[in-house]
Design a protein around this nucleic acid. Structure first.
Length: 138
DNA sequence: TAGGCCATCTGGTCCT
DNA sequence: AGGACCAGATGGCCTA
């Protein structure tokens, strides 16, 4: 876990004038603040776990460095749009472009092929880069 | 050393 | 009243 701010501790916020009037009130306020801080830490932990899950799903071609939260969201958006494009193409043509090399593949078998096959990955990647380019110049 | 990214604290607002 | 969520502030760590 990362180090905390030196000026702030789990003991809560600096006591305001009103809080320090009654030791009991101060204690209550402090306890509430500590509980709120703990909840907030847990909430952020959940959020970060969700980001980690998203990072695992989102492609990171040529990226050896971990994506930032902002980059992860941007990448997820582009990825979804690329996948959507593939689906749109699949509906428009009888077969998606990346399946042209598979004469034996019929539409009813698309689900069996899976988009994790090599040609699917290639097509997805090129679609993805095209979208990225498009968004870059938009 | 500046800038980016992040964790944490905090007070405000809304909801149950 | 208390919890969830949010945004702002702050300070630490890392990299170019």
């Amino acid at each position: 876990m990362k180090s905390r701010r030196s000026s702030c501790t789990d003991s809560g916020s600096e006591s305001s004038e009103s809080d320090s009037k009654s030791p009991q009130k101060f204690e209550t306020t402090t306890r509430r603040r500590m509980a709120a801080n703990a909840r907030e830490r847990k909430r952020m932990e959940g959020l970060n776990t969700a980001f980690d899950c998203l990072r695992k799903v989102v492609p990171q071609w040529g990226q050896d460095k971990k994506l930032s939260k902002y980059e992860t969201l941007q990448m997820a958006l582009s990825y979804i749009m690329a996948l959507n494009r593939i689906l749109t193409d699949a509906q428009r043509h009888s077969t998606p472009q990346w399946m042209d090399s598979f004469d034996c593949v019929q539409p009813e078998n698309y689900c069996l092929m899976g988009y994790d096959s090599v040609p699917a990955q290639d097509f997805l990647q090129s679609s993805f880069y095209q979208l990225e380019e498009h968004q870059l110049h938009a």
